[in-house]
Nucleic acid binder design. Structure first.
Length: 429
RNA sequence: UCCCGCGUAGCUCAGCUGGUAGAGCAGACGGCUGUUAACCGUCGGGUCGCAGGUUCGAGUCCUGCCGCGGGAGCCA
């Protein structure tokens, strides 16, 4: 009977068949070991020459790494086996032979691995990282579903909208110009009067020529938007949300986090409340430490790392200077030099994983900001309509999926947390 | 766009103050009952990123270009 490797412990003593790919093959004079990966787990098959027909031994010992085979054998508990069970092989069927496999069980360079990303996916750390990603994605949908959010799918092809036009991918649209979306936020705002609590989750595109371990040109972003929520409500939601998905990963991805050698103690500390520090307080403290940081400048990577080092869990930095932030953020009534917004900085140097704000709901002030930023006014007429027909206080945020999963898995580069990363110089495979 | 670093065998790398190329892994063959990135032996394998320059002689020194990595900026 055909079985999955993950279920083998329930079939001790039985003869089963498992199908998969050869992860490793070690041939001795009278015994051989084949490590089979079937997508649900890994099992070692033991082949004893004296107990196999000559042609089967010949076939088995001539197999190559990553050949696809079906192994038939008796499930046998064995303390020496990594999964606790081995297969004493009685039959082998070759399903698909493999040419010489490029990725060896050894260290490789980044360029080589990315060139072979279509094969690299089979490696254990990659499987672990992508499985955590899938679990986090499911946790995200569950979190919002359980809180009565309605999922709104926003367009990928757009006219020129977003935060700044200089970083958009342009494409031809029947003779007109179109751009790949860099955010779904303006669209989910429009869905708020229809559904009150909404979110979008999809790919976004940035044509920034960034070459760092925190950047992709195509990444997945989750963007909730909530009517009648102010900036503090917004941070409360982010806090619940982050705690929920981290707890889910800890609960459901133990084996994967172990493969990734993740230090779980920093994840276990991700409990409410997160520290909240205003931009102005952060600047004062930076200067008190001798940083000589001028109020009004945006925080850079160095400052963010310093700030997150003050705390043992994610930290909110809120109410940045207006000049450092996007046009749609609401002016702070208590300090008009600032806007009601927040970033969430992940610990351990992973940087900004969330950016959120209360939105400007006053028609005149929003229009003034669009003009100040020299944005194409007619492109935003529909967005301004939201302030014309029953405007309302609302807030939302965007969470970068790959950065978040990069932090949860502890991987150094977020390119490993998306199946096929799109980087500034990489469009293949 | 700027700054720093790196391009040598299929892969990962060594190659000194210049003297014409080396290891491990992978591959092929042989050996070995329990291996976990198995081990031992033999063999095949090179436009030293590209172009120019200095020199009797360049993988090595110089210049330019290309590619890659990291960082800055910008952002999630």
């Amino acid at each position: 009977m055909n079985q999955q490797v993950k279920d083998l412990s329930r079939h001790a003593g039985e003869t089963v068949t498992v199908s998969g790919w050869i992860a490793a093959l070690r041939v001795h004079a009278r015994v051989a070991f084949v490590v089979l990966r079937d997508g649900t787990g890994v099992v070692q098959g033991v082949l004893v020459k004296s107990q196999l027909p000559a042609d089967l031994w010949e076939l088995a010992t001539s197999l190559t790494q990553e050949s696809c085979i079906a192994l038939t054998g008796v499930v046998r508990p064995d303390e020496r086996a990594p999964g606790g069970h081995e297969l004493t092989v009685t039959g082998i069927e070759l399903i698909g032979a493999s040419d010489e496999y490029p990725i060896q069980p050894k260290e490789h360079g980044v360029e080589f691995l990315l060139d072979h990303r279509h094969l690299w996916l089979r490696s254990s750390m990659q499987r672990a990282g992508l499985r955590v990603r899938a679990e986090v994605e499911q946790a995200i949908h569950d979190f919002f579903y359980e809180r009565d959010f309605v999922r709104i799918d926003t367009p990928i092809l757009t006219g020129a909208i977003g935060e700044s036009a200089g970083t958009l991918f342009e494409t031809d649209y029947f003779g007109d110009r179109a751009f790949l979306a860099q955010t779904g936020q303006l669209y989910v705002e429009c869905a708020c009067p229809a559904f009150r609590k909404v979110y979008c989750f999809g790919p976004t595109f940035r044509a920034e020529k960034s070459k760092t371990r925190r950047h992709l040109t195509e990444f997945w972003m989750i963007e909730p938007e909530v009517a009648f929520a102010d900036s503090n409500d917004n941070m409360d939601l982010q806090e619940d949300f982050i705690c929920s998905i981290v707890a889910r990963a800890l609960d459901r991805c133990g084996p994967e986090l172990e493969v990734l050698k993740r230090d779980l103690s920093t994840l276990q500390r991700v409990q409410p409340p997160f520290p909240r520090i205003s931009y102005s307080e952060a600047v004062a403290r930076l200067n008190a430490e001798g940083r000589d940081f001028e109020w009004g400048r945006d925080l850079g990577a160095v400052e963010e790392t310093t700030i997150s080092s003050w705390f043992d869990r994610p930290v909110f930095v809120y109410n940045y200077p207006k000049g450092a932030k996007a046009f749609y953020m609401k002016e702070n009534p208590d300090d008009p030099r600032t806007v009601l917004c927040n970033d969430l900085l992940a610990p351990e140097g992973y940087g900004e994983i969330v950016g959120g704000s209360q939105r400007e709901d006053d028609f005149d002030r929003l229009l003034a900001r669009i003009r100040e930023e020299d944005l194409p006014e007619d492109a935003y007429d529909w967005y301004l309509d939201l302030r014309r027909y029953g405007t309302f206080p609302h807030s939302g945020f965007g969470l970068g999926l790959e950065r978040t999963v990069g932090w949860i898995t502890g991987r150094p580069h977020i390119r490993e947390l998306v199946p096929f990363p799109r980087l500034i110089n990489r469009l293949k495979p």
